[in-house]
Design a protein around this nucleic acid. Sequence first.
DNA 1: ACAATGATTGCAACATTGTTGCATTTATCT
DNA 2: AGATAAATGCAACAATGTTGCAATCATTGT
Lengths: 140, 140
Amino acid sequence: MSHQLHHSAEDLIRHNGGKVTAGRVGVLALLLAEQQAITHREIEQRLPRTLQLDRVTLYRVLEWLAGKELIHKVSSDDRVWRYHANRDVQSHQHAHFKCTGCAQVICLETLPTERNWRLPAGYQFQEIELTVKGLCASCC
Amino acid sequence: MSHQLHHSAEDLIRHNGGKVTAGRVGVLALLLAEQQAITHREIEQRLPRTLQLDRVTLYRVLEWLAGKELIHKVSSDDRVWRYHANRDVQSHQHAHFKCTGCAQVICLETLPTERNWRLPAGYQFQEIELTVKGLCASCC
DNA sequence: ACAATGATTGCAACATTGTTGCATTTATCT
DNA sequence: AGATAAATGCAACAATGTTGCAATCATTGT
């Protein structure tokens, strides 16, 4: 977790009109440094001892960051939210990959634009959520 | 819940080498009668008083039915499994629609076959899970 | 620098969903 | 009908997430 990231995290939080607290900065910097989408539990474990947050506070920090669209939540079939930093603006619309071996979750770049499925009459489309399952390189 | 369905349910269970118990038959018949994918809770509530099952037993019945591929589980972002009868053989590979208004979940017929996303090198594809979110006819 | 203020945090308690172990009951087979 | 393995009910537990409230902290204006 570099100084660079801490600085970016601070800026992002300040620009969104939130109080710059150690917890928020630490969590966002951690997520910015992370390639995968990780769980509340994993975030807790990776935070340095110097800024251990209360479980509840961490949930609220994540909720706040997600509300400001600095991160996004990834749902999974194991009923656990995973969190990932939003690097790009269009980052809400993308697919996720979940390894059935190690439960690792990563974000895929593209989303199939084809819509060859059809909704029943009167139904209104809002958003699409696509998870590809398989084995990651280390689990193959 | 017709006699017809009860009979089909019994047959399906017997053909899969399971004991034909009131609980299994009732639950499967109920799911066969249902259009949507429904939760454990909803199943519990819709079961007639004459065959109220223990919470745990219902979970195990559902697990057994899913193991025999008579039904399938649908994961959702609200961390609640939903269950739906398998009518066709190819019914594992399909998309789901979830109404963001009433949380109703239905199964869509087709799955986009286009694979214009790409996995990182060394990753292996297994299956795809697609949920379309939007508003259903009554929530529009 | 300091006080005021509202946002943020920590704590305790709770809610929901699902699971495990084990003794009891039941469907099926002979 | 009796034997047997499968299925059930109960109690306890586990994991994840939420709510209410009092204490603390970052920011703002002076």
